[in-house]
Design a protein around this nucleic acid. Structure first.
Lengths: 114, 114
DNA sequence: CAAACACTTAGCCCTTGCGCTAAGTATCAG
DNA sequence: CTGATACTTAGCGCAAGGGCTAAGTGTTTG
């Protein structure tokens, strides 16, 4: 479990890094509408195919998408579950705030008692 | 409104970039527990103060934290609302999936009718 | 089987990001 | 007013990121 959470933390980094690029976020959005070939995806961006492929590989190596090649065409599919990393991070953040609010409340209550 | 959404989209990028660094995410987490001085924050990381300050400035210029200097000490506070950018992005993503699911459903229904 | 297609690989360029040291400024403490 | 404190500025070094071209590989297609 300690190892798992460490691993999760490490991998989380890659997800955030992958999401830092607007092109990659756009790809994710596009793939939300369904699987798409690399060529079709690339056509929507003003960069060359090799450059675009780097983004695809980044997304894949960080688990945000999966790809399969059939014949000469590679199809990309979104891995929705992977975004849970971000969701979890936000949730943890909220948990921390709430804990703080609780502490403040207890503090105020104490003040009132004295 | 068109300008606002463009601006929002542009600024969103900065937020994601800011979150891509583990040190900066840690700072956000730490600040969730309450305002802290730069020095106190920096002490928790294995980097020099000038290096750390860059992270602070990145976080501030992207609206994730706010800082005030009183005397010689600069205090950082979290700007919780700013993380809504991420929340919104996730929400939009979910919206897109749902739309897709709806389309698929309609498609299946049509198939059944014919 | 030749040519078109859909990537892929290799390698270069340039900017940006993140880290460092050294030195500077502005409080605060004595 | 001297020294410690808490940043701040300036500038350097290096690795990584994102873009490009040119050339290569493996699949169709005519």
């Amino acid at each position: 479990m300690a190892i798992l959470s460490l691993m999760a933390k490490h991998e989380a980094d890659g997800v955030f890094v992958a999401l830092a690029d607007p092109t990659r976020r756009s790809v994710i959005r596009r793939l939300g509408r369904g699987p798409t070939s690399v060529g079709e995806l690339a056509a929507e961006f003003p960069i060359t195919l090799p450059s675009f492929m780097k983004h695809v590989r980044t997304l894949e190596s960080n688990g945000l998408i999966r790809t399969v090649k059939t014949g000469r065409v590679r199809t990309c599919v979104l891995n929705r579950e992977r975004l849970a990393v971000v969701d979890d991070w936000l949730a943890e953040q909220r948990r921390i705030w709430e804990e703080r609010t609780d502490r403040l409340e207890r503090f105020v209550t104490q003040e009132e008692q004295s």
